[in-house]
């Protein structure tokens, strides 16, 4: 399953620059809002589901080489964070859905924890 299929199935808003998301295959999923836990627990090339929208999420995703961040519950990263994500090549997606529901949908699509 590629990232474009996930974006379509979950009706995600794309916050960062558009690219060919069908070429990106997320390896696994992870969720936490504690960035220290993410740094210790998220697997490379995974999708990270969080309601944290602070600028530090970009650095964490870049550090771990994550595939994409899905920001839930309408949390809005500021313009500087989005611009930093574009610089770092981090894909940020957004939804008004809650993290629980997003994880459930990703699981139904076949994604598993890393």
């Amino acid at each position: 399953m590629n990232l474009q299929q996930i974006i379509d199935a979950l009706n995600l808003t794309i916050l960062t620059e558009k690219k060919d998301f069908s070429l990106i295959e997320p390896a696994s999923g992870y969720t936490s809002d504690l960035l220290s836990c993410v740094m210790a627990g998220a697997a490379k090339q995974g999708i990270w589901v969080t309601l944290q929208s602070h600028g530090n999420i970009v650095a964490v995703a870049a550090l771990l080489d994550l595939c994409a961040i899905i920001i839930t519950e309408d949390a809005k990263p500021d313009a500087a964070t989005i611009s930093k994500a574009n610089e770092e090549g981090i894909i940020m997606l957004a939804t008004s859905e809650k993290s629980f529901s997003v994880c459930g949908q990703l699981w139904s699509l076949g994604l598993r924890g890393g």
């Binding site: 960035l35 944290q52 530090n56 964490v60």
Partner: peptide, 9 residues
Amino acid sequence: LLPILGFVP
């Protein structure tokens, strides 16, 4: 700050 945001912004 450190557990939640990982490092100092």
